[in-house]
Each structure stands twice: as C-alpha cells, then as structure tokens.
Design a protein around this nucleic acid. Sequence first.
DNA 1: TAGATTGTTAATCGATTAACAATC
DNA 2: TAGATTGTTAATCGATTAACAATC
Lengths: 217, 217
Amino acid sequence: MIENVRQVVTTQALYRMPYYIQQLRVLQEQRIETVSAPKIAELLNLNEVQVRKDFAAVYSAKGKPKTGFNVAELLDSMEELLGYNNSDEAVIVGAGSLAHAIMTHEGFQDYGLKIVAAFDTDADRIGTDINGIKILAADKISNLCRRMKIHIGIITVPAYRAQVVCDQLVAGGVLAIWNFAPVHLSVPDHILVQNENLAASLAMLSNHLKQALGAEA
Amino acid sequence: MIENVRQVVTTQALYRMPYYIQQLRVLQEQRIETVSAPKIAELLNLNEVQVRKDFAAVYSAKGKPKTGFNVAELLDSMEELLGYNNSDEAVIVGAGSLAHAIMTHEGFQDYGLKIVAAFDTDADRIGTDINGIKILAADKISNLCRRMKIHIGIITVPAYRAQVVCDQLVAGGVLAIWNFAPVHLSVPDHILVQNENLAASLAMLSNHLKQALGAEA
DNA sequence: TAGATTGTTAATCGATTAACAATC
DNA sequence: TAGATTGTTAATCGATTAACAATC
C-alpha cells in the first residue's frame, strides 16, 4: 500500500504562502520567468533557506542550481495547494458591518471562498440581502449547512453570542470556522478554528508603541 | 543606575492576553473574585504552566497557593499592559468597505484605538465622512500625521498601493502599521508592521478542509 | 495536616538558521 | 571552469511542557 508521503506543510509555512503567491504574481507581470530563493528571500525579508524549504514543501516544483525556480510552475503549485482553483462554500453569521465588508470583498472569490448565505437574529435584517446574498434567520443555521453540505462557517457576531453560533455551525456539519469574535471557542478535535482576533493585533501595536515611545522617557 | 527589569512579554503571550481579558471579564460578571491558573487553562484550552507564566509576565499580579489570582487585579494589570486605558490615535488609509467596518466598530475605542482621520484617492469620497471621521486626500498623509503626532497607520488599500502608502505613513512619523493588504511591506527596523492577512487565514481553512475531506478519498 | 496551587528550573518540541556537499 | 544556487543534514533558538520544591 502506497502512502501519500507528500511533505506536510507547517502552519508557519502556510502563513507565508500568500506572500509568495503575491510576489510571484508581480514577477510574472514583469515577464520574469525564473527566480531564485535568495531573491525571494530578499524581497520578502525572509531567510533564504526557509524560502527553499517552503518551496520544497510545495511538491512538484523543483529548482535548478544557478537558475532557480520557474515562476509560473511555482505559482500554480501554490495556488493549487491553497485551493484557489476549487471553490469552498461558506456561510457567515452576524450580518453587521464586518460581515458586510467580507461579503462585498470580491477578492475572496479569487482565494476560493464563496459565501452562499448569511444569518442574523435582527428581524429588520432578515429577508434583505447584501451583495446578492440572502440574510436568513439564525435558527436555520444547522439545517441549511447540513442540507447544502457547507464546510466553512464565518463568525462575526458579538463575543457573548459566538459560542452558541459555533455550536450550531458544528451541529450543521461545518468543519472549519473563521472566528472574528474575540473569544476562545470550544470545539471537537476535528474542527479547525481560525481566529482573526483584531484585539490581539491591536495589543501588538499598542505594546510596540509603548516600547518605542517609552524608551525616550 | 536602575534598569527596568520588568519581564519582557513574548509575542505569543501578547496574543493570548486578549483571551485572558475576555475570560476574566466573564468571571467578573459572575462575581467570581479569584481564579486559578488550571481553571483558566481549562476554559481557554491552554497549558496551565503557560497560563502561570503569562500571568507572571504581567508584573504586579501575584498568585496565592491554593487560592489562585485576584480576578480584578489581574484584569487591571492586563488592560494596563495592552494600553486599554490610554488611547492611541490612528489614521486609516483606503476608505473602502473594510475601512468602513473598522471605523464603525465601536469596540476599538475600548481597546485604546482612536481613528482620527481617513484618507482616500477617490475624489467622490474625499470630503465626505464615515462615522464622523473626515475623509481626506491621500497626498496629505505625511503632513497630517506629522502635525498631529499620529503613531499608528491602518492600511486598507489594494495590494499594489500598499507600499506607497506605507512609505507615506513612515515619512509622517508613524511607528506602527496595521496592514490589511495581502503584501509584505518594507519598513525601517524601528517600525512595526502588524499584518492582518486574511488570505493567509483562508489558506489555513482551505488546507484543513482538504485534509479533512481528502482523508475520506 | 493534607492537598491544591504557586513559581521556577529542566526537558522537550518545533521551527529557524547555519554549514556544506551536489549540480548546473 | 568558477561560482551561483540548490537540497539536506546539523546546530541553534525560542516557546511549550514536564517535574518538583515551596507555600498557603
């Protein structure tokens, strides 16, 4: 029995992939056909060995000594890996201004994310639509996810509501959750929660400023 | 000469702080006065030693064996550390729907972030305002930042515009940048770039789905 | 007291970086 | 060929976790 031995891509490497993709696209627009790891490392301010390892993890693409890597092939491999070609369907819960921004952001289609329904508890919002996506009553979450075989749920509700919503999504068979609420969500082991904690990012900014400005005092 | 030897808080620990704060607030609402590290660890699905170390990094607060930590004191220390009490002023560049969501999100005020001006290149937007914040012409970035001593810049422009905007912010004396554009930004060493790369988050979701669903095949 | 919990030192783990032989 | 660049093995670094004595 042949195991699928494709090298596992680490979490950190996965985070870097979109930066490689973006940079490779720029190079492609400039009609540059090959690029070396040291060059990419310089452009993205990374270590060249790290770049080479990340590239190696993207299966098919192989580099040539002295020449480097084929830009187009590398780009294809990465886009394939990140699923930019096949679209995943998602629902979004909490139809506030953040949800609005996410739903109207055309870019996500390119990244293989397709939002097919939105949910809210606000009676005034239910029945309306944003960018062509219908807003439904929140009590229909589980049913709709199960019926439509939705695997991604996006949470943009207030913190105190997030766990309840999360449980409903999981009950509906969702396998991955993109959580914008600033709370820890408890989920079964096989479910991935990707936290987009803006409060945590602000903590970084604030801490840096304190250091930078405090140093003068 | 006495050095400031306050234990440095690691990047990872800083990321966890908002979760501690959120959890501590919930406990406080329940009139719970003390809490142990193992309890918090259980609630947030973390290791108890890690929780204790994180708490230790927050200076003043000390735990008592058998009792644990004082919720109110711990909360105060953390909010102080993250600058929730003193407000940092920021400008936002790119007045699209994401900027709109950020500007109308009242929560950021509580986190100590105050957006005082927005910039755009679109003549139709310039002169209007969002949530009471005036939208100004993008060529005024450096001047305004310098004049108002703004230290935080938020970038929500398209990828191809981000580096130019970043340079203008840095020229205006900004020390920390919150970057929502999916590109690497080159900045001098003393400037912090906090990337909020939604494409990278999507990469995580997509990869997890591939694993979870692919395993069946 | 006994035992839960703290704080700290030591061991482990994972990711990054350095060193180096292979190759075009 | 010489030298830039690749791919890989070994060393380093930082963060997490385990082990354990101190304490209320």
